[in-house]
């Protein structure tokens, strides 16, 4: 794949992720819990992880966090660091599972990603937000990650099948 081509695809993926991520900040939250989102942008991260790999996935999700925060005016605020930590942890976990646990399908990977995203945010919050009882939210964030991960996983699978039929992309899926 030529460099230019790659750059174009990348830009498209980052734009798509940013659009989805920003869209979600505008929608009202499904649950009154900080950090719980459907995680539509995670669909893009998943696709990139499957189509390219860890490095590319990290780049796309970090650019997405950066752009969404710039759009929302939360750059370098507490909320930004929470999203950042969630994105890094979930991308690492998903990439690890894709590489080492081949028995998991994209749905399982998505679920693990959603849960680790929520946990990652909470871990960051425990450093950034000084309250002794931050883990008050833990069970809800754990449980909320399951259905949101399932939904984004199914959506990602649909898209992945579509892309797999196209020959202009390099496919690594097993």
């Amino acid at each position: 794949m030529s460099k230019t081509r790659k750059l174009v695809y990348f830009s498209l993926f980052v734009t798509l992720a940013t659009a989805l991520g920003f869209l979600e900040t505008l929608l009202s939250n499904p649950l009154p819990l900080p950090g719980v989102k459907l995680g539509l942008a995670n669909i893009v991260t998943l696709l990139v992880l499957y189509l390219y790999g860890l490095k590319e996935g990290l780049v796309v999700s970090l650019f997405r966090v950066l752009f969404v925060s710039l759009l929302g005016g939360t750059f370098l605020a507490v909320g930004f660091w929470l999203s950042f930590s969630g994105a890094v942890l979930s991308t690492l976990v998903m990439a690890g599972l894709i590489k080492y646990v081949s028995a998991l399908s994209i749905i399982g990977v998505s679920m693990a990603g959603a849960v680790s995203h929520n946990v990652g945010q909470l871990l960051a919050a425990s450093f950034l937000i000084q309250t002794p009882y931050i883990f008050y939210y833990l069970p809800f964030l754990l449980l909320a990650g399951i259905p949101t991960g399932l939904v984004t996983g199914y959506l990602a699978r649909l898209l992945l099948r579509y892309f797999q039929g196209k020959d202009f992309l390099i496919i690594n899926e097993k």
């Binding site: 998991l104 399908s105 749905i107 399982g108 679920m111 693990a112 849960v115 069970p139 754990l142 399932l150």
Partner: peptide, 19 residues
């Protein structure tokens, strides 16, 4: 969903419920 997916789902659900 593969069997491993299902195990993961169960595992997460149990951890969540215990929490």
């Amino acid at each position: 969903m593969t069997k491993t997916d299902q195990k993961l789902l169960l595992g997460l659900l149990i951890i969540g419920l215990l929490a």
